[in-house]
Design a protein around this nucleic acid. Structure first.
Length: 423
RNA sequence: GCGGGUAUAGUGUAGUGGUUAACACGUCUGGUUGUGGCCCAGAAGAUCGUGGGUUCAAAUCCCACUACUCGCCCCA
């Protein structure tokens, strides 16, 4: 425990993997821009109250103590965000975004924290791309979010994608439906697994996504929420599907797709990777028209999605999708003998000042030229700049192109320009 | 919180009771005077996860703990 080791559920992203992150972030920010979303940063720490009200005290975050909460001595109580949406809404309200041109379309990329038991591609700190449209009820906004999510996966190289969609109703029709579902399940309580009996008590909607044996058959005959929506919600859902049809987006209505929290309303969706051997949700989102009021703000609709970066990285690796290779290191300076160090370091900073990517092969006292050349090779530098005593005297540098082995002497004052032309 | 698996140098592994724990890759250095990749030579690097126990003797058998990992739950 006291050993040098990362904390449970944490990850180091090393350069080899960062290439994937960089690619994902570039695609995500590019698409967000294309879609007209603007980047924001919201804090990692928020008052615990925000999540208590925004995510709900009955949620697993609270019930299972999955949040990282810091109780400070002065009585302040802050929590590391377990998700983003509540922060977005808080920011929207606090910064008076209700007075901006509506709707407000924002996105961010950053870490969130949940104190769970780590599993494959599930960490206590995970990063996600999060996009939200706040202040708009139009189902076309729901579609924008869905299309943004799908486009991201698509642009990264996911071939087979499909949506699963559902509506969870609103504060008017959801409770009515929940009661119907509860009644139905109560009738068949003898067929429910112990976990589902608990869910039936706590949150009947959760029974819908139960993976217990025999639930398929039992739930097939259960009341479905899409048949129990109020007029407004039904119209919203109908329009959403019509838009998806027009855009030729494959989707499947999944009546078991739910959000157990009251503030979530209407649209719920997940993006599925439908390629062989990968039947799984890779991202999702939904509408939360009740959230603002839940955290003490004015009535304000919103819809958003969250997309886990780590899972995309894992997915890309599984599919054998590689980030494009970065450009090779431009130059490595090799120096040996006499007073060459001073000249080499001087040249190094001249090159850098000129914007030429360059590193120094450290000589460590009496390290041989051969050893430094080996380093140049291992670092896959394009050019080795060789500075021995002869070059120092002549005011030149021997520039060797590693791939071809060709080399020429270049005046020290001209090296930067020479390299810029060829790098 | 509940189950299963694993734990030997930086990485991947070998080693199922008996001398200085092996191999590969990687790292570092050198291979005659200033030139990389291949090759050759050498070096560094492991209290065999931690702590107990059994035994004349433990990396090896037993127990506990811890960590990691895979599932459950929930999610990204």
């Amino acid at each position: 425990m006291s050993s040098i080791q990362r904390a449970t559920g944490m990850q180091d992203v090393l350069p080899e993997d960062w290439r994937y992150w960089e690619m994902i972030i570039e695609k995500a920010t590019g698409l967000a821009h294309t879609f007209g979303f603007e980047r924001v940063e919201v804090p990692i720490l928020e008052y615990t109250n925000l999540f208590a009200r925004g995510v709900g005290k009955s949620s697993d975050f609270f019930v299972q103590k999955e949040m990282y909460t810091i109780e400070e001595e002065d009585g302040e109580d802050v929590t590391m965000r377990p998700e983003f949406t509540a922060s977005f809404m808080r920011s929207y309200i606090q910064n008076g975004m209700g007075n901006w041109v509506q709707p407000v379309k924002l996105y961010t990329i950053g870490p969130a924290f949940r104190r769970e038991r780590p599993q494959a591609n599930r960490f206590r700190q995970h990063s996600q791309f999060n996009a939200e449209i706040i202040g708009e009820t139009d189902p076309a906004a729901d579609v924008e979010i869905m299309m943004l999510a799908r486009s991201l996966y698509h642009s990264l190289g996911y071939k087979s994608l499909a949506f699963q969609v559902n509506s969870t109703g609103c504060r008017d029709c959801k409770p009515v439906y929940v009661q119907k579902l509860r009644d139905y399940l109560a009738e068949h309580e003898d067929k429910l697994a112990p976990v589902d009996k608990t869910r039936l008590e706590m949150n009947p909607l959760r029974v819908l996504d139960s993976k217990e044996a025999g639930m398929d058959a039992l739930l097939a005959d259960a009341p479905h929420i899409v048949d129990n929506l109020c007029e407004d919600c039904a119209e919203h859902f109908k329009t959403l599907l019509a838009l998806l049809d027009k855009l030729e987006q494959p989707y499947k209505i999944n009546f078991r797709l739910v959000r157990g929290i009251d503030y979530y309303t209407k649209t719920v969706f997940e993006v599925w990777d439908t390629s062989i051997g990968a039947q799984a949700a890779i991202g999702g989102g939904g509408r939360y028209d009740g959230l603002s009021e839940a955290i003490g703000g004015p009535s304000c609709p919103g819809v958003g999605c969250g997309i886990g970066i780590e899972r995309i990285v894992a997915g890309l690796k599984e599919q054998g999708i590689e980030p494009p290779a970065g450009p090779p290191l431009t130059a490595i300076l090799i120096h040996f003998g006499g007073e060459t160090k001073v000249g080499a370091v001087d040249l190094l900073y001249q090159l850098r000042a000129a914007g030429v990517q360059s590193i120094l092969a450290f000589a460590r006292g009496k390290r041989s030229m051969k050893s430094q050349m080996r380093e140049a090779n291992k670092r896959e530098a394009k050019f080795a700049l060789i500075m021995g005593e002869a070059e120092m005297e002549a005011g030149t540098v021997m520039v060797r192109e590693l791939a071809s082995g060709e080399q020429t002497a270049v005046g020290q004052a001209d090296v930067a320009e020479w390299l810029r032309e060829r790098a």
